[in-house]
Simulated assay, not measured.
Amino acid sequence: MSQPRARAAVFSAGSWGTAVAKIMADAGSDVMVHARRSEIAEAINTRHRNPAYFPDVDLPVSLTATTDPAAALDGADHLVLSIPAQTLRANLAVWAPDIGPETVIVSLMKGIERDTRLRASQVIAEVTGVSADRVAVLSGPNLAREIMDGRPAAATVACPDEDAARRFQTACHTRYFRPYTSTDVIGCELGGALKNVIALAVGTASGMGLGDNAVALLITRGLAEITRLATAMGAHPATLAGLSGLGDLVASCTSPLARNRTFGVHLGHGLSVEEAMAATRQTTEGVKSAEAVLGLARVHDVEMPITEVISALLNDEVTLDEAAAELMQRPPRPER
């Protein structure tokens, strides 16, 4: 007798949520996406396409959609959350009563809550009251467009419960997507959130025409910043050299598909923050999280000069030229 197919609920129908929903459907789960807009849900159910993000990609027939969160959550083995980090608390408070007692909650979010400076997994545990063993994180160098095209990619699934991590690993392992497991939730989650701020800096430098040397400088010293803060908060240093650290940083800082880098390029071209937001057209977690990241650095007494300059630039406290000069005029010191 065959085993029943696993069920997954994916909130929401944005680019990364749709990509992970496709991965899980291709891996053998029945997936129901929660879409805010009824026309998106209808298109997924009737035409098997998401017209808002990937109008040219056919979705598996085992991937369906609904605007009813309770219907999406009914019987779900995994709840996969792919919504803006700053809206997580309010949305989750509404959805929490319908989350099953055995459902594993998986965060795809790469941001820090501004008011509390909490990671997404911490917000999830706080709002839902579930054990940390039921909260996992998926993070890595994952550009949604490439994954939707079936190009090879990998990521890290981090959860304190190794069995839960392995179950989700199985639920998203396909011929084109290779997940690894870890128990270092802090490192995996911070690597994803902190790299967004560095990607803003790299994009800004690229937009200003500062050259490839400057890009390499920012990526390398950015990784040093990320590692300093993450390890001060309890992460394992090796995690930051892995897929959810260095891997995600490289993809986000070098690909024109990466939204934080793209936002930075707009800033480097002289657009205001508001104009860059309009031009980027998607949630840019680094912009929302930069100040919270800087707050964490100060609490843990960690030096993060790139983050400090980007936060000042986003708050109109420095000009583009002043930002570039400030980084280059720091006192010389040993590299390590």
Rank of each mutant, 00 (worst) to 15 (best):
R221N: 10
L218I: 07
L267Y: 05
I226E: 00
A214Q: 10
V250E: 08
C253D: 01
R221D: 03
V273F: 10
G245F: 09
L218T: 03
N213P: 02
S252W: 10
L229P: 01
A232Y: 08
A214D: 00
A235C: 01
T254W: 14
T262D: 00
A216P: 05
A214M: 13
S244Q: 12
L246V: 10
L246S: 03
S272E: 09
P256C: 12
L229Q: 06
I226N: 04
H236M: 08
H266I: 03
L218P: 02
R221W: 05
G222L: 08
G264W: 03
R281P: 00
L217I: 14
G242M: 04
R259V: 12
E225I: 02
A279L: 12
I226M: 15
A230W: 05
E275V: 13
S252G: 11
T231Y: 02
L271T: 11
G242Y: 08
A251E: 03
T254I: 13
V265R: 13
T262F: 08
I219M: 15
T227Y: 06
S252N: 12
L229I: 03
L223P: 13
P237F: 11
A216S: 12
S255Q: 00
H269W: 09
A232H: 04
Q282D: 07
A276T: 11
G234R: 10
